[in-house]
């Protein structure tokens, strides 16, 4: 059973997860993402850049938000193309939290780096905290 955190316990400056979340870009994953999004990119060794944003979910999950939280908005900057075989390491830092329309929001800045430490993607994501806690 996962441990959930109450919104009140979220602090600006929290780093999630303590060790960057690791994700390997495999051919099967690139192909599945393309199939789901009607992407017929002719170069099979290239991977959709958007995958770097998709796997931000591992960082969001590590925060301990109860079920029911959702993305509100996101901005991402892609610093280089992704390729099958890349290993992505992503971490995030809480930069703001606020209430709007009686919903609790959390803002995180995130960075995704490759196994050599080079920046692959970065950005900011804003999400509504889950309501169960």
């Amino acid at each position: 059973m996962p441990t959930f955190r109450a919104y009140a316990d979220v602090q600006i400056g929290d780093v999630c997860p303590p060790t960057p979340a690791r994700f390997a870009v495999t051919q099967a994953i690139a192909d599945a993402f393309r199939a789901a999004t009607l992407d017929d990119e002719p170069n099979p060794s290239a991977a959709p850049s958007m995958l770097a944003a998709v796997y931000l979910i591992q960082v969001l999950q590590s925060r301990g938000s109860p079920p029911g939280g959702v993305h509100a908005k996101q901005s991402v900057r892609f610093h280089r193309r992704l390729a099958v075989g890349d290993v992505l390491l992503t971490s995030g830092t809480v930069t703001d939290k606020f209430w709007r329309k009686e919903r609790p929001y959390v803002v995180m800045a995130f960075e995704t780096r490759d196994a050599q430490g080079a920046l692959v993607a970065s950005g900011v994501t804003t999400s509504i905290w889950g309501a169960a806690a």
Partner: peptide, 12 residues
Amino acid sequence: PGTVYLGQTLRF
């Protein structure tokens, strides 16, 4: 094809 994706904002 050949496009380099540099950035994207998304508002859900």
